[in-house]
Each structure stands twice: as C-alpha cells, then as structure tokens.
C-alpha cells in the first residue's frame, strides 16, 4: 500500500538534492562583496520610504470586518446555484429571503456611514 507513495518519496529526495546542489554552487562560485546599496531594501521603481512593519489605520479593520460578513454569503450562493433547477420555487424563495436579510444589514451599514472612508 505504501508503495503507491514511492514516486513521491523519490521526487522529494530529488528535489532536496537538486536544491542543495544549486544553492551550494551559488555560494562557492559566486563573488561576495556586499555594500550598503546592495543590502538596502527596495520597492519597485522608487526608494523605500517607511518600515514595512507600520501600524495600520483602524479603518482598515472596519473594512475587513464588513468584508468578512458579506464575503461568506457566496459560500451559500454557490451550492444553491448548482442545484437551483432541482429545488424549485421553495429554493428561490428561501434564497430571496436570505438575500433580503443581507440587504437589510447592508442598508443599515450604509446609513450608519460605515462605508465612508472619512
């Protein structure tokens, strides 16, 4: 039974050996003379202007929170869409109610100003 995994094992061994060889070639044959320019971090096209471990604005959290909620309705919509032919009218009504409740939440969120950035 374990024999089925033999190719995987061989593949893993090859991958490790191959990677080790490539890295050691680079280490031994390449020239190594670092300077400050080379070691400094860079962003594409322009100079780095702040540390990447900065603090986020709390408003990102709010957007993330709202996103999570509305994101997961899709988890219910996809399976529903696959079988909507078979479940008929009741299915459509149920999904309509579900979306209606979501819309209520959305209206509330909109009127509360949670979608505005400022």
């Amino acid at each position: 039974m374990l024999l089925e995994y033999l190719p995987v094992l061989i593949f893993l061994i090859f991958a490790i050996i191959f990677a080790a060889i490539m890295l050691s070639i680079g280490f031994t044959l390449g020239k190594n003379n670092p300077n400050t320019e080379k070691n400094s971090p860079y962003e594409c096209g322009f100079e780095a202007f702040e540390d990447s471990r900065m603090k986020f604005d709390v408003r990102y959290y709010l957007v993330a929170i709202l996103f999570i909620i509305f994101d997961l309705e899709i988890a219910f919509l996809f399976p529903w869409a696959v079988v909507v032919h078979e479940i008929g009218f009741i299915g459509i009504i149920s999904m309509a109610l579900f979306l209606l409740i979501l819309v209520v939440g959305f209206i509330y969120e909109w009127k509360k100003g949670a979608l505005e950035w400022d």
Binding site: L100, I101, G105, Y108, K111
Partner: peptide, 9 residues
C-alpha cells in the same frame, strides 16, 4: 428587519 431599516432613517 423593519426596525433596523427604519431606525437608520
């Protein structure tokens, strides 16, 4: 549901 919508108005 009604109260949630109405209340924001």
């Amino acid at each position: 549901s009604f109260v949630i919508v109405l209340d924001s108005f």
